Every structure is written in structure tokens, then in C-alpha cells.
Simulated scan of single mutants.
Amino acid sequence: MGKQAGSVTCAAGMRGRAAEFVTGITARSRLPLDYSVASLRVVDFLIDGLRKGGADQDRVREPLTGLGAYVGEVLVRRAGAVWVDLDDTQRAYFGQEVGVRMPDGRVWNPLGKVLNRFGSSGPEDSLQTFYLTLHGRPRRTAA
């Protein structure tokens, strides 16, 4: 069975997956998920809420996948990344089938970062901090 563009496991389907997630969650609440860097703080809050609610990772796999797609799409829109299908070595390392490639060629794993955030409560796993300290994104220069 081949990968389909709408599949979560295919880079071509990740933008749509993020949009579906945003549409679904904002239909129920007024969360400011606008693909801004600041919205990653909301993602941290949502993941913390899932964890504090006592859900196990398997039960919340769909929302976590949606949040991972959203984080990746923020990297695409704000940091110049592109969605990529990971090769066998990258899949083994990251435990995911898709990731993002930054303008400098580095590959990052937003889905795995979301899972790491869910598994810990430490500030070191903040997705907003991840973006702000991300290697490979263009830096603003003083004009």
C-alpha cells in the first residue's frame, strides 16, 4: 500500500493535516492557533492539559499528531522549512516518517517534539522555546 497525499505519514499531507486540526479545535474553542510563533505557547498549554488530564499517549495519539503537524507547519510558515518524507536512517532515529528540513539543510522532528512535551513537564521541552532556539532558521538582522 503506497503513501497517500492526505496521509499523516506523507510529507505532502502534513499541511492539510495541520489545517484539519486547527479547523476542528477552533470550531470548539476560541484558541488563537494562527501559525504564529506565539501560538506555540498555546500548543504547550494544550499538551500540558492532555497530560494533566491523565490520558495515556495511545489514547491521545490523534490530537498529539495534529499538534505535531501544527508545530511543523509553524516551522514551514515562519522559519522557511519544508515538509519532507524521512529516509530509513532518519525514520529509525526520529521514530517518525515525516519531518521538516530547514533552509540550512538540517532536519527536525516536530511530531517527536510534541511527544516529548507530552512525556515531560519540563520547560526544556517547550515548543515555543524549541522554535526560538531552533538551529537552521533564518535570523533577523538589524536594519
Rank of each mutant, 00 (worst) to 15 (best):
F21Q: 06
G72L: 06
R61L: 04
S121T: 12
A27E: 07
D88A: 14
L33Y: 08
V82D: 00
A18T: 04
R17Y: 10
T141C: 03
L64N: 04
P110G: 01
L64K: 04
M1N: 15
G66K: 03
A5M: 03
G112F: 08
K3C: 09
F118N: 10
V107I: 13
C10F: 12
A69Y: 02
L46T: 08
E62V: 15
A38G: 02
R106T: 13
L86Q: 04
T65S: 06
V22S: 11
L86S: 01
A143Q: 02
R106Q: 14
A19R: 12
F118H: 05
H135C: 10
R77S: 04
F118R: 10
D125V: 14
Q96M: 15
G122S: 11
E62K: 08
F21N: 05
V71F: 09
R117I: 12
L50G: 10
D44S: 08
G16R: 08
K52S: 03
P103T: 02
E97G: 07
Q57Y: 00
G66T: 01
I25S: 05
T133R: 12
G49Q: 06
F94A: 13
L67S: 07
P63S: 01
V76K: 11
F130G: 12
N109D: 15
A38K: 00
D34M: 07
Q96G: 06
E20R: 02
C10K: 15
F45Y: 05
L40Q: 03
V60D: 04
P63N: 01
S7E: 09
S7D: 12
Q57G: 00
A69W: 05
V114K: 02
V60R: 01
P123A: 15
M1R: 11
R137H: 05
